[in-house]
Write a protein that binds this DNA or RNA. Structure first.
Lengths: 205, 205
DNA sequence: GATCATACGGACCGGCGGTCCGTTTATGTG
DNA sequence: CACATAAACGGACCGCCGGTCCGTATGATC
């Protein structure tokens, strides 16, 4: 929207607008990477050359755009996560819901996302932006969950609890339970719900 | 013990006994690897060549002995873990202790171990033998914890709960909380204890 | 001290992440 | 439409690393 306008007043702006071919390529790379990671059970099976080839661009383009492998993966995740984040925010800010339900919904949403994108998420953890390390995703989930936990009476250490609960649904654990132990996604969500319910305190309400 | 005897009757045995220099080298490699991983915050900072050089052996020796990087790391962990496992087994089999205390002790022991060896454990997770994947360590911890949880009334899904609790003390999370968030080891153990106590159920006893 | 299985070590290989730079192109201008 | 230029492109290239191979050295055995 209003791209022409922006460019006209570019002398004022610090950021230039994205060139058309650059935008096409960026989207192609993100799509290719997403597809390749989703298709490969092992992150190492997908090289940067593979992604470049699949996207029909040169390798240099990948690295100029995304910095490095971790940056690319982070970008893919961000693009996948953004719509979800909006939804989550709405649900969390809805006034009607009980705090416990909010926490539950949050974790279930995150789990479902990780189930659907578990190979991608495994690639992310593999690339070093695993749990807490330099991953804005993780920070966002942690912060959101902590805020929700704050509203639940009887939770003594929301910060640590948030870490612990997020650890419970780490991508590789999810992948293991589903792919190796043949647990069904529904079964997993169910187990998680029961576990969370337990953590939130049988007594405190 | 009785190595000479073993060797005398080697015609009967399938496994040959280890040559003296081989044993020396194996120990040197394990020690070197342990030291190097402990000293480096990032697993990638320690290459197989580094370990070989530090141990004063050729690279071929490393790979013949341990198969690959993951195998070497697993061996280091095993060597560190073995004494601990014996202790844990004793404590778990002691009849006097209450089930809840056993679970608590188990997790605290594991956490302490991971705090002390967090760089090594991070290297392990990095090498692909992270949580559930092909890591006999993990299986052992999981099985032991599950058995302990079985004895605690009010725990509905010991298998999943064991996974969840072990996830709470994953090496990189521990490393993050201590090294980045500057949480103290004691504080962490304390938070974990409270969390576990919570999970075991405020009501069920 | 001879023999022989076993272990040693480091040159070597393939692949991967990441860089560099000569070439191409989208965009704004007259 | 031709021109100028900033921006983006792409793939050859580099260094590193995990892993292999094989000629050599050595501990065990008799």
């Amino acid at each position: 929207m209003a791209r022409r306008t922006e460019r006209t007043e570019r002398t004022e702006r610090t950021e230039r607008t994205e060139r058309a071919d650059a935008q096409r390529n960026r989207e192609a790379v993100l799509a290719a990477a997403d597809a390749l990671f989703a298709a490969s059970s092992s992150p190492h099976g997908v090289s940067m050359d593979d992604i470049a080839a699949a996207a029909g661009v040169g390798k240099g383009t990948l690295f100029r755009r995304f910095g490095d492998r971790a940056g690319l993966i982070a970008a893919v995740i961000t693009s996948r996560l953004e719509p979800l984040q909006r939804t989550v925010r709405e649900v969390q800010e809805a006034t009607g819901t009980a705090p416990r339900q909010r926490v539950l919904a949050l974790l279930d949403t995150s789990l479902t996302f990780k189930i659907e994108n578990r190979n991608l998420m495994a690639a992310a953890e593999d690339a070093g932006l695993s749990s807490p390390y330099r991953a804005q995703h993780y920070d966002w989930w942690h912060e959101t969950l902590r805020a929700a936990l704050d509203q639940v009476p009887g939770v003594h250490d929301p910060d640590f609890t948030a870490h612990a609960l997020l650890a419970t649904i780490r991508a590789d654990l999810v992948a293991h339970l589903i792919d190796e132990q043949k647990m069904s996604p529904e079964g997993l969500r169910c187990s998680l719900a029961a576990y969370v319910d337990n953590v939130l305190g049988g007594e405190g309400g």
